[in-house]
């Protein structure tokens, strides 16, 4: 009899492997898509079609020198990437990828999953803030300050947009939400919420055009200016994992999770899930190649003065509609 903890470890290992691989290839995917949109072929020298590029990058990251600035707080400086990474990875414990993974394997079937995810991503911001602060130099500090403000600003709109879904589904279990979408995906009734979710999630994951935390042209590299080698790699991984997480959540909350489209239930649910999440990631990349970075004051204006009221309005309308129809 295999002890429960061994099973848990095996599960964790499998998920981690899948997640890390996904990260690696989503990075390659991003580079390729961006290159194409910029009329370039993208990485194509390492392996066929550049397939080994992530491995090469990983090897490079590992062998680069790990520098710590003299002015840095050594403990927190070293710790910060791990906070980011652990939080980013932790979310995958809660995400159900398909009916089977949730059912048979018992993965991600947590009754208040969405709250756990929000809790974990909120902790993840500490990684960035602490990294910026502990670097002991001005650009990272500015980056971390921006990060904190940006997170708080958009977390509200993000949560608001999700509550609409929760009201409709009547559950906080992600499996339940997916099940609730067997008929109509929530993207239809919650279109406004979906759009707010997209915008806020881009800001949450610090990706272009909301990547003011890094902002190479102003802040050199933002919070990770001083990081190098593997520690920088950890931030890098965390950022992509966050992106994947958000893509998964969007799929679960708005795109019907693993529910098939056009009744094509022959295709396994996991495939649908991956396709939907992949489309979402592609959208992220598309955004990045198309839109320039926002000015910081406009970002804040937009978040507080437009996104939050609209999200609140959306929530109230949803609640009213639900109350009326249920009543």
């Amino acid at each position: 009899m295999i002890p429960w903890w061994a099973i848990a470890l095996i599960k964790a290992a499998v998920i981690l492997f899948v997640v890390v691989t996904t990260f690696a290839y989503s990075m390659l995917f991003e580079r390729k898509i961006m290159a194409w949109m910029q009329l370039r072929p993208g990485p194509n020298r390492v392996g066929p079609w550049g397939m080994m590029q992530p491995a090469a990058d990983a090897a490079k990251m590992m062998f680069k020198e790990d520098l710590t600035p003299e002015t840095a707080d050594p403990l927190i400086y070293r710790l910060a990437p791990f906070i980011s990474l652990v939080c980013a990875m932790g979310t995958f414990a809660i995400i159900p990828f398909s009916e089977s993974s949730a059912g048979i394997w018992g993965m991600g079937n947590v009754n208040a999953g969405i709250l756990v995810i929000f809790a974990l991503t909120s902790i993840g911001v500490y990684g960035i803030s602490l990294a910026g602060w502990s670097s002991g130099s001005k650009f990272p500090l500015l980056g971390s300050v921006r990060s904190t403000a940006q997170m708080i600003s958009y977390e509200l709109a993000l949560t608001m947009s999700v509550i609409g879904v929760l009201i409709l589904a009547g559950t906080t279990s992600l499996v339940g939400i997916v099940h609730a979408q067997r008929g109509l995906w929530y993207i239809a009734p919650q279109l406004v919420g979906f759009i707010i979710f997209i915008i806020a999630s881009v800001a949450e994951t610090n990706r272009a055009p909301f990547d003011l935390v890094e902002a190479e042209s102003e802040l050199v590299g933002g919070f990770h200016t001083e990081y190098s080698g593997l520690r920088f790699g950890l931030f890098f991984i965390a950022e992509y994992l966050n992106m994947i997480t958000v893509a998964c959540i969007a799929t679960l909350l708005f795109l019907g999770g693993w529910n098939p489209l056009f009744g094509l239930s022959i295709v396994p649910g996991i495939v649908w899930f991956i396709v939907k999440a992949g489309l979402f990631i592609f959208m992220y990349i598309w955004l990045r190649t198309t839109l320039p970075r926002l000015r910081y004051d406009r970002l804040m204006n937009f978040g507080w003065k437009f996104l939050l009221p609209v999200a609140t309005l959306n929530l109230m309308v949803t609640a009213a509609v639900v109350a009326v129809t249920a009543g």
Binding site: W36, M37, Q38, L39, R40, W286, T290
Partner: peptide, 17 residues
């Protein structure tokens, strides 16, 4: 228009030698 432009470019022939 912006998104269409970038998307359109993704499928063009690349000039890279």
């Amino acid at each position: 228009r912006g998104f269409a432009t970038t998307l359109q470019f993704a499928f063009q022939k690349k000039p890279t030698v």
